[in-house]
Simulated assay, not measured.
Amino acid sequence: MNLALWIVTGLLAAAYLVGGAFKVITPKEKIAAGGSSGRWVEEFSAGGVKAIGTLEVLAAVGLVLPAVLDVAPVLVPSAALGLVLLMLGAAIIRIRRYESKLVMVDLVYAALAAFVAWGRFGPESFIS
């Protein structure tokens, strides 16, 4: 179980670090021009998109560093729980925008983050 949690955590951290950094660095207009998966930015200001990207980067760091450094390991499942909430919000935006094909992607990410939160709060907790 611990190995599965680490694998999922690593994959989530990598995905959110890259995706979040992209949102922070790339102008909103360029994200929107990237295709149907980037049209959601039309719902947010440029600052809002950068804030979402920043939250994703912080969550990616929070998924890994506290456990690796053994400093405040409760932040790992807390970061995962934050990602669950972020992805449920993303799914709601997609539903409102009638982007039903992409809702499942958001829900899969939410489920993976929920698995990490459950595992690290519960059976494979870092907290002693």
Rank of each mutant, 00 (worst) to 15 (best):
L85S: 09
T9R: 11
A13R: 02
V68D: 04
A4T: 06
G62E: 03
L55A: 12
L75N: 02
Y16P: 00
S36N: 06
L81M: 10
M87D: 08
G38F: 07
I127K: 14
V103T: 13
A91H: 05
V74K: 04
S37F: 12
V84M: 10
L12S: 02
F44L: 15
E124K: 01
P73E: 05
V61D: 02
L75P: 01
Y98R: 14
V61F: 07
R97Y: 06
V74I: 10
V18Q: 03
L112K: 05
N2S: 08
L75C: 07
G122S: 10
A4L: 13
V49L: 05
E43G: 07
A51G: 00
L5G: 04
L55I: 11
E56H: 01
A32H: 12
L88M: 13
T54A: 15
V71W: 05
W118A: 12
L81G: 10
V8S: 06
E99P: 13
T26P: 03
I52N: 00
A72S: 11
S100N: 15
A79F: 03
I52A: 12
V76Y: 05
G20F: 07
A67L: 01
G20I: 08
A14Y: 01
L102W: 14
A13Y: 08
A111N: 13
R97V: 09
G48H: 03
A32P: 07
L69V: 10
P77A: 05
G89M: 03
V61P: 00
F44C: 03
A113Y: 11
G48D: 11
F115R: 08
L112G: 07
F22V: 07
P27G: 04
L102Y: 13
K23R: 14
I92V: 15
M1P: 10
D70A: 14
P27D: 08
L81N: 00
F115K: 06
M1G: 13
A67R: 11
A117F: 11
S125I: 02
D70R: 11
T9V: 01
V76E: 10
F121I: 13
P66N: 02
T54G: 11
F44A: 02
R39Q: 15
S45H: 02
G19L: 04
R94K: 15
A111Q: 08
M87Y: 13
R39C: 04
E99V: 09
W118S: 01
G20S: 04
S36F: 07
G34E: 09
R120H: 06
L112E: 10
V105I: 15
L65Q: 04
A33W: 08
T54C: 12
T9A: 06
G89S: 09
V84T: 11
L75T: 00
A117W: 05
S36C: 00
T9L: 00
G35I: 11
A80L: 04
V57F: 02
S45V: 02
S128R: 09
G48R: 04
E124R: 08
L75D: 00
A32Q: 12
Y109M: 15
L58M: 07
L65F: 13
A72K: 08
T9Q: 06
R39M: 09
L85H: 01
L12P: 01
D106P: 04
L17I: 02
L17R: 02
V64R: 03
V8H: 03
G47I: 01
L11I: 14
A15H: 06
I7S: 03
S45P: 01
W118R: 00
K101E: 15
M87N: 13
K50T: 05
A117S: 09
K23W: 12
V68T: 08
F126R: 13
